[in-house]
Design a protein around this nucleic acid. Structure first.
Lengths: 157, 157
DNA sequence: TTAATTGCAAAAACTTTGCAATCGG
DNA sequence: CCGATTGCAAAGTTTTTGCAATTAA
């Protein structure tokens, strides 16, 4: 879906909920769409702070991010410690993430079979899925050396 | 694994890292083991506050929870908004979660095939998995009525 | 006009940390 | 005894909120 169409739909979404079309909201959606991969709220806040013209405040960023989540244009894809990493989902096929706990690298992947199995699980539980998140934490190939020896005593169920 | 064995291993784990066996740490592991399902840090803090004898402070709870995670006895299984929900993993087979966004109900499930597919994905990326978390957010059977009509305008990739 | 939005500062919620006193080995 | 741990209070993070001024429709 092209960005313009998305923005127009976001406009409809706002109207439907009795909200207004404001410049700040659309500046933020533009900025988010410009991120090729993941972003955090602080990225948006820093970007705003770096601009001459005041685009929005920290509060507006938080409020707009919430709206965009409800609208469905962005998702919280990784929750790592106290950080929340978002992703602009427009135009990208759905996918999951491998996260390297050493270097922070994020690798995206998609397996149709995993999605299907999830659907089946939901059916079995008469559960209507809205969204899901599969995070695999581990060590990426570059960080792998010398990471095995200190783990023997850890408890494994 | 019985609780005593687990505690003994935790003792070894502490020694190996140059830490000490203290009463607070073992009171906390006992309490965590007593939770049949999920818990949050505030549950532990409230429990301590409700006890006559001072078992540990809030700081000690946070520090011990971190140790137990490193040891592998507990996991962060759900990150919902700003809440972190933990689970005592000892003696329970690994599983994933369905989370009802209406009522907060948590349903556990396990699908061998999903685990295998994840392993395959990791192999393909030469990625060494340490742990993973699959959260499916949605609406449980009891909450399902009347939840469909307000979603048409949401953007779907 | 008037109801929604904004920015600010304050507060809330959650987590970490420095330090002096205490405790474990 | 010595170094790890604890409790406390303070500070750090991240997010939310009340409110007066502003803006969209």
């Amino acid at each position: 879906m092209p960005l313009d169409e998305l923005k127009s739909k976001f406009g409809q979404f706002l109207k439907q909920r009795g909200h207004k079309i404001t410049r700040g909201r659309f500046e933020i959606i533009d900025k988010i769409a410009s991120y090729t991969s993941h972003f955090e709220i602080e990225d948006l806040v820093r970007w705003i702070a770096s601009q001459d013209k005041g685009i929005a405040s920290r509060s507006t960023v938080y409020r707009t991010v919430r709206l965009l989540q409800e609208f469905g244009a962005i998702r919280e894809v990784i929750k790592l410690g106290n950080r929340t990493i978002y992703e602009f989902v427009a135009g990208k096929p759905h996918h999951e993430h491998l996260i390297c706990v050493e270097c922070g690298k994020i690798i995206e992947f998609y397996r149709e079979e995993i999605e299907e199995l999830q659907d089946r699980v939901c059916e079995e539980h008469d559960f209507m899925p809205i969204n899901h998140r599969l995070e695999i934490f581990g060590i990426c190939s570059e960080c792998k050396e010398g990471k095995l020896e200190s783990r023997e005593l850890e408890y494994r169920a």
